[in-house]
Amino acid sequence: MSIQHFRVALIPFFAAFCLPVFAHPETLVKVKDAEDQLGARVGYIELDLNSGKILESFRPEERFPMMSTFKVLLCGAVLSRVDAGQEQLGRRIHYSQNDLVEYSPVTEKHLTDGMTVRELCSAAITMSDNTAANLLLTTIGGPKELTAFLHNMGDHVTRLDRWEPELNEAIPNDERDTTMPAAMATTLRKLLTGELLTLASRQQLIDWMEADKVAGPLLRSALPAGWFIADKSGASERGSRGIIAALGPDGKPSRIVVIYTTGSQATMDERNRQIAEIGASLIKHW
Protein backbone atom coordinates (compact mmCIF):
# COMPACT_ATOMS: atom_id res chain seq x y z
CA MET A 1 0.00 0.00 0.00
CA SER A 2 1.40 3.43 -0.94
CA ILE A 3 1.80 6.23 1.61
CA GLN A 4 -1.08 8.13 -0.01
CA HIS A 5 -3.37 5.09 0.11
CA PHE A 6 -2.32 4.53 3.73
CA ARG A 7 -3.32 8.10 4.56
CA VAL A 8 -6.81 7.74 3.12
CA ALA A 9 -7.29 4.29 4.61
CA LEU A 10 -6.58 5.64 8.10
CA ILE A 11 -9.27 8.33 8.00
CA PRO A 12 -12.04 6.05 9.40
CA PHE A 13 -9.55 4.67 11.97
CA PHE A 14 -8.66 8.11 13.28
CA ALA A 15 -12.37 8.93 13.57
CA ALA A 16 -12.63 6.57 16.51
CA PHE A 17 -9.59 7.98 18.30
CA CYS A 18 -9.52 11.65 17.36
CA LEU A 19 -8.99 14.33 19.96
CA PRO A 20 -11.74 16.91 20.40
CA VAL A 21 -11.63 19.86 18.03
CA PHE A 22 -12.62 23.40 18.84
CA ALA A 23 -13.79 26.19 16.59
CA HIS A 24 -12.41 29.71 16.72
CA PRO A 25 -14.91 32.53 16.18
CA GLU A 26 -12.13 34.77 14.84
CA THR A 27 -12.57 33.08 11.47
CA LEU A 28 -16.25 34.01 11.41
CA VAL A 29 -15.30 37.60 12.11
CA LYS A 30 -13.18 37.47 8.97
CA VAL A 31 -16.03 35.88 6.98
CA LYS A 32 -18.34 38.72 7.98
CA ASP A 33 -15.63 41.23 7.11
CA ALA A 34 -15.33 39.61 3.68
CA GLU A 35 -19.04 40.20 3.15
CA ASP A 36 -18.54 43.88 3.92
CA GLN A 37 -15.49 44.15 1.69
CA LEU A 38 -17.15 42.37 -1.23
CA GLY A 39 -20.64 43.78 -0.77
CA ALA A 40 -21.93 40.25 -1.27
CA ARG A 41 -23.21 37.20 0.53
CA VAL A 42 -20.56 34.79 1.78
CA GLY A 43 -21.32 31.25 2.85
CA TYR A 44 -18.83 29.34 5.00
CA ILE A 45 -18.63 26.02 6.74
CA GLU A 46 -15.84 24.18 8.49
CA LEU A 47 -16.43 20.48 9.13
CA ASP A 48 -14.33 17.96 11.03
CA LEU A 49 -13.44 15.32 8.46
CA ASN A 50 -13.38 12.46 10.94
CA SER A 51 -16.50 13.09 13.01
CA GLY A 52 -18.55 15.20 10.61
CA LYS A 53 -19.06 17.78 13.36
CA ILE A 54 -19.67 21.34 12.21
CA LEU A 55 -16.95 23.46 13.77
CA GLU A 56 -18.09 26.82 12.45
CA SER A 57 -20.52 28.11 9.85
CA PHE A 58 -22.02 31.24 8.35
CA ARG A 59 -25.06 31.12 6.09
CA PRO A 60 -24.69 27.31 5.95
CA GLU A 61 -28.21 26.73 4.64
CA GLU A 62 -28.44 29.48 2.07
CA ARG A 63 -28.18 28.65 -1.61
CA PHE A 64 -25.14 29.64 -3.66
CA PRO A 65 -24.17 28.89 -7.27
CA MET A 66 -22.05 25.73 -7.43
CA MET A 67 -19.98 26.92 -10.37
CA SER A 68 -17.17 24.49 -11.20
CA THR A 69 -17.12 22.94 -7.73
CA PHE A 70 -19.76 20.54 -9.09
CA LYS A 71 -17.00 18.82 -11.08
CA VAL A 72 -15.80 16.98 -7.98
CA LEU A 73 -19.29 15.59 -7.44
CA LEU A 74 -19.48 14.67 -11.12
CA CYS A 75 -16.26 12.68 -10.98
CA GLY A 76 -17.50 11.06 -7.78
CA ALA A 77 -20.55 9.89 -9.73
CA VAL A 78 -18.29 8.63 -12.53
CA LEU A 79 -16.15 6.71 -10.03
CA SER A 80 -19.24 5.12 -8.49
CA ARG A 81 -20.09 3.79 -11.94
CA VAL A 82 -16.55 2.48 -12.28
CA ASP A 83 -16.90 0.70 -8.93
CA ALA A 84 -20.18 -0.83 -10.12
CA GLY A 85 -18.61 -2.12 -13.33
CA GLN A 86 -20.65 0.29 -15.47
CA GLU A 87 -17.71 2.42 -16.60
CA GLN A 88 -13.96 2.11 -17.16
CA LEU A 89 -11.46 4.86 -16.44
CA GLY A 90 -9.45 3.71 -19.43
CA ARG A 91 -12.34 4.00 -21.90
CA ARG A 92 -11.49 6.49 -24.63
CA ILE A 93 -14.10 9.05 -25.64
CA HIS A 94 -13.89 10.78 -29.01
CA TYR A 95 -15.48 14.15 -29.65
CA SER A 96 -15.55 16.87 -32.27
CA GLN A 97 -14.99 20.60 -32.62
CA ASN A 98 -18.74 21.08 -32.18
CA ASP A 99 -18.49 19.64 -28.66
CA LEU A 100 -16.00 22.25 -27.48
CA VAL A 101 -17.30 25.04 -25.25
CA GLU A 102 -15.56 28.05 -23.77
CA TYR A 103 -12.63 27.38 -21.47
CA SER A 104 -11.48 23.94 -22.55
CA PRO A 105 -7.68 24.18 -22.28
CA VAL A 106 -7.11 20.41 -22.24
CA THR A 107 -9.84 18.94 -24.44
CA GLU A 108 -9.17 21.39 -27.26
CA LYS A 109 -5.76 19.76 -27.69
CA HIS A 110 -7.14 16.23 -28.16
CA LEU A 111 -9.64 16.52 -30.98
CA THR A 112 -7.77 13.94 -33.05
CA ASP A 113 -7.10 11.30 -30.41
CA GLY A 114 -9.86 11.81 -27.84
CA MET A 115 -9.40 11.36 -24.10
CA THR A 116 -9.99 8.58 -21.59
CA VAL A 117 -12.53 8.90 -18.80
CA ARG A 118 -9.63 9.18 -16.37
CA GLU A 119 -8.06 11.97 -18.39
CA LEU A 120 -11.38 13.80 -18.64
CA CYS A 121 -11.88 13.73 -14.87
CA SER A 122 -8.35 14.96 -14.36
CA ALA A 123 -8.94 17.80 -16.83
CA ALA A 124 -12.28 18.70 -15.25
CA ILE A 125 -10.90 18.89 -11.71
CA THR A 126 -7.29 19.99 -12.10
CA MET A 127 -7.86 22.47 -14.96
CA SER A 128 -11.63 23.04 -14.66
CA ASP A 129 -12.03 22.10 -18.33
CA ASN A 130 -15.67 22.71 -19.29
CA THR A 131 -15.85 20.39 -22.29
CA ALA A 132 -14.42 17.59 -20.17
CA ALA A 133 -17.23 18.16 -17.68
CA ASN A 134 -19.88 18.06 -20.40
CA LEU A 135 -18.47 14.85 -21.88
CA LEU A 136 -18.48 13.26 -18.43
CA LEU A 137 -22.02 14.46 -17.79
CA THR A 138 -23.04 12.68 -20.99
CA THR A 139 -21.58 9.41 -19.69
CA ILE A 140 -23.81 9.46 -16.61
CA GLY A 141 -26.97 10.65 -18.38
CA GLY A 142 -26.81 14.42 -17.95
CA PRO A 143 -27.31 16.96 -15.15
CA LYS A 144 -30.50 15.38 -13.83
CA GLU A 145 -28.71 12.07 -13.31
CA LEU A 146 -26.02 13.80 -11.27
CA THR A 147 -28.77 15.32 -9.13
CA ALA A 148 -30.30 11.85 -8.76
CA PHE A 149 -26.92 10.45 -7.70
CA LEU A 150 -26.67 13.13 -5.02
CA HIS A 151 -30.22 12.42 -3.84
CA ASN A 152 -29.30 8.76 -3.46
CA MET A 153 -26.39 9.88 -1.27
CA GLY A 154 -28.84 11.71 0.99
CA ASP A 155 -28.18 15.18 -0.44
CA HIS A 156 -31.60 16.59 -1.33
CA VAL A 157 -30.28 20.14 -1.61
CA THR A 158 -27.54 20.16 -4.24
CA ARG A 159 -28.81 20.18 -7.80
CA LEU A 160 -27.37 20.45 -11.29
CA ASP A 161 -29.80 21.51 -13.99
CA ARG A 162 -27.72 22.70 -16.92
CA TRP A 163 -24.51 22.09 -18.81
CA GLU A 164 -21.33 24.12 -19.13
CA PRO A 165 -21.19 27.05 -19.52
CA GLU A 166 -24.89 27.93 -19.00
CA LEU A 167 -24.84 26.60 -15.42
CA ASN A 168 -22.69 29.60 -14.43
CA GLU A 169 -25.44 32.17 -14.96
CA ALA A 170 -25.90 32.67 -11.19
CA ILE A 171 -29.21 34.54 -11.36
CA PRO A 172 -30.28 35.75 -7.88
CA ASN A 173 -32.97 33.54 -6.27
CA ASP A 174 -32.62 30.96 -9.06
CA GLU A 175 -32.19 27.53 -7.44
CA ARG A 176 -30.83 25.91 -10.58
CA ASP A 177 -27.26 24.66 -10.32
CA THR A 178 -26.95 25.57 -6.64
CA THR A 179 -26.00 24.05 -3.33
CA MET A 180 -25.72 25.09 0.31
CA PRO A 181 -22.40 25.12 2.18
CA ALA A 182 -23.63 22.54 4.70
CA ALA A 183 -24.93 20.19 2.01
CA MET A 184 -21.77 20.45 -0.07
CA ALA A 185 -19.49 19.85 2.91
CA THR A 186 -21.45 16.79 4.00
CA THR A 187 -21.55 15.36 0.50
CA LEU A 188 -17.84 15.94 -0.06
CA ARG A 189 -17.07 14.23 3.24
CA LYS A 190 -19.14 11.21 2.20
CA LEU A 191 -17.30 10.96 -1.11
CA LEU A 192 -13.87 11.18 0.52
CA THR A 193 -14.40 9.06 3.64
CA GLY A 194 -17.63 7.07 3.32
CA GLU A 195 -18.38 3.66 1.90
CA LEU A 196 -20.06 4.98 -1.24
CA LEU A 197 -16.80 4.65 -3.19
CA THR A 198 -14.13 1.99 -2.91
CA LEU A 199 -10.85 2.92 -1.26
CA ALA A 200 -9.19 3.08 -4.68
CA SER A 201 -11.84 5.46 -6.00
CA ARG A 202 -11.72 7.65 -2.89
CA GLN A 203 -7.97 7.88 -3.32
CA GLN A 204 -8.33 8.72 -7.01
CA LEU A 205 -10.79 11.51 -6.27
CA ILE A 206 -8.61 13.10 -3.62
CA ASP A 207 -5.56 12.73 -5.87
CA TRP A 208 -7.29 14.72 -8.61
CA MET A 209 -8.25 17.42 -6.11
CA GLU A 210 -4.75 17.52 -4.65
CA ALA A 211 -3.40 18.13 -8.17
CA ASP A 212 -5.69 21.15 -8.73
CA LYS A 213 -3.77 23.67 -10.83
CA VAL A 214 -6.20 26.60 -10.91
CA ALA A 215 -6.88 27.32 -7.22
CA GLY A 216 -3.50 28.82 -6.31
CA PRO A 217 -4.72 32.33 -5.35
CA LEU A 218 -7.29 30.99 -2.87
CA LEU A 219 -6.67 28.77 0.19
CA ARG A 220 -3.42 27.42 -1.21
CA SER A 221 -1.87 30.88 -1.03
CA ALA A 222 -2.29 30.86 2.77
CA LEU A 223 -1.13 27.28 3.33
CA PRO A 224 1.99 26.77 5.47
CA ALA A 225 4.68 24.34 4.36
CA GLY A 226 3.84 20.74 5.15
CA TRP A 227 0.08 21.21 5.07
CA PHE A 228 -2.16 19.08 2.87
CA ILE A 229 -4.87 20.44 0.60
CA ALA A 230 -7.12 18.89 -2.01
CA ASP A 231 -9.54 21.40 -3.49
CA LYS A 232 -11.71 22.59 -6.36
CA SER A 233 -12.53 26.20 -7.08
CA GLY A 234 -15.27 27.81 -9.12
CA ALA A 235 -16.15 31.17 -10.62
CA SER A 236 -19.17 32.44 -12.49
CA GLU A 237 -21.21 35.48 -13.35
CA ARG A 238 -22.49 38.12 -10.90
CA GLY A 239 -19.33 38.14 -8.84
CA SER A 240 -19.60 34.50 -7.82
CA ARG A 241 -16.58 32.62 -6.49
CA GLY A 242 -16.19 29.48 -4.45
CA ILE A 243 -13.96 26.69 -3.23
CA ILE A 244 -14.41 23.29 -1.61
CA ALA A 245 -11.43 21.70 0.11
CA ALA A 246 -10.10 18.99 2.38
CA LEU A 247 -7.06 20.25 4.25
CA GLY A 248 -4.96 19.86 7.35
CA PRO A 249 -1.47 19.96 8.88
CA ASP A 250 1.09 17.15 8.95
CA GLY A 251 0.45 16.17 5.35
CA LYS A 252 -3.04 14.79 5.81
CA PRO A 253 -6.57 16.21 5.62
CA SER A 254 -8.53 16.69 8.82
CA ARG A 255 -11.22 19.24 7.91
CA ILE A 256 -13.58 20.09 5.09
CA VAL A 257 -13.93 23.78 4.26
CA VAL A 258 -16.52 25.21 1.87
CA ILE A 259 -16.62 28.90 0.92
CA TYR A 260 -19.03 30.49 -1.55
CA THR A 261 -19.74 34.09 -2.43
CA THR A 262 -22.11 35.66 -4.93
CA GLY A 263 -23.48 39.07 -5.87
CA SER A 264 -20.24 41.04 -5.66
CA GLN A 265 -19.10 43.85 -7.93
CA ALA A 266 -15.51 43.25 -6.82
CA THR A 267 -12.79 42.14 -9.19
CA MET A 268 -11.71 38.52 -9.38
CA ASP A 269 -8.44 39.44 -7.66
CA GLU A 270 -10.33 40.99 -4.75
CA ARG A 271 -12.64 37.99 -4.42
CA ASN A 272 -9.60 35.72 -4.41
CA ARG A 273 -7.92 37.88 -1.77
CA GLN A 274 -10.90 37.77 0.57
CA ILE A 275 -11.14 33.98 0.32
CA ALA A 276 -7.39 33.71 0.89
CA GLU A 277 -7.71 35.89 4.00
CA ILE A 278 -10.49 33.66 5.32
CA GLY A 279 -8.11 30.75 4.80
CA ALA A 280 -5.31 32.57 6.59
CA SER A 281 -7.56 33.20 9.59
CA LEU A 282 -8.68 29.57 9.60
CA ILE A 283 -5.09 28.35 9.62
CA LYS A 284 -3.93 30.88 12.23
CA HIS A 285 -6.64 29.75 14.63
CA TRP A 286 -6.56 26.06 13.73
Score class of each variant (00 low, 15 high):
residue 3 I to Y: 14
residue 4 Q to L: 06
residue 6 F to L: 12
residue 6 F to D: 06
residue 10 L to H: 07
residue 11 I to G: 11
residue 13 F to V: 11
residue 19 L to P: 09
residue 25 P to H: 08
residue 31 V to I: 13
residue 37 Q to K: 15
residue 38 L to R: 03
residue 41 R to L: 10
residue 42 V to G: 00
residue 43 G to V: 09
residue 47 L to R: 02
residue 48 D to H: 03
residue 53 K to W: 06
residue 58 F to S: 05
residue 59 R to K: 05
residue 60 P to D: 15
residue 63 R to H: 05
residue 65 P to N: 03
residue 65 P to K: 04
residue 68 S to C: 00
residue 73 L to C: 05
residue 76 G to C: 10
residue 77 A to T: 07
residue 79 L to R: 00
residue 80 S to L: 12
residue 81 R to D: 03
residue 81 R to Q: 10
residue 82 V to E: 02
residue 82 V to F: 05
residue 83 D to R: 01
residue 85 G to W: 04
residue 89 L to Q: 03
residue 94 H to N: 13
residue 96 S to V: 14
residue 96 S to G: 15
residue 96 S to H: 12
residue 96 S to T: 13
residue 97 Q to E: 14
residue 101 V to S: 07
residue 106 V to R: 04
residue 109 K to R: 14
residue 111 L to I: 15
residue 121 C to L: 03
residue 125 I to L: 12
residue 126 T to R: 03
residue 126 T to Y: 09
residue 126 T to S: 10
residue 129 D to V: 00
residue 130 N to Q: 02
residue 131 T to G: 08
residue 147 T to S: 06
residue 150 L to C: 08
residue 153 M to I: 12
residue 160 L to P: 00
residue 160 L to I: 12
residue 160 L to M: 10
residue 168 N to Y: 03
residue 169 E to L: 10
residue 172 P to W: 07
residue 174 D to F: 02
residue 174 D to T: 02
residue 174 D to S: 04
residue 178 T to L: 00
residue 182 A to S: 15
residue 187 T to A: 04
residue 187 T to D: 11
residue 190 K to N: 11
residue 194 G to C: 11
residue 194 G to D: 10
residue 200 A to E: 14
residue 203 Q to G: 07
residue 212 D to S: 03
residue 213 K to S: 10
residue 216 G to W: 05
residue 217 P to R: 07
residue 218 L to I: 02
residue 218 L to T: 02
residue 219 L to N: 01
residue 222 A to G: 06
residue 223 L to V: 13
residue 224 P to A: 01
residue 224 P to T: 02
residue 224 P to S: 02
residue 224 P to V: 01
residue 226 G to D: 07
residue 229 I to Y: 01
residue 231 D to F: 01
residue 237 E to H: 13
residue 238 R to P: 14
residue 242 G to N: 02
residue 244 I to M: 04
residue 244 I to N: 00
residue 246 A to V: 11
residue 246 A to G: 01
residue 249 P to C: 03
residue 251 G to K: 09
residue 252 K to P: 01
residue 256 I to V: 10
residue 263 G to E: 05
residue 266 A to H: 06
residue 268 M to T: 06
residue 268 M to R: 04
residue 275 I to V: 07
residue 277 E to G: 09
residue 277 E to W: 02
residue 278 I to T: 00
residue 281 S to G: 03
residue 285 H to C: 08
residue 286 W to G: 00
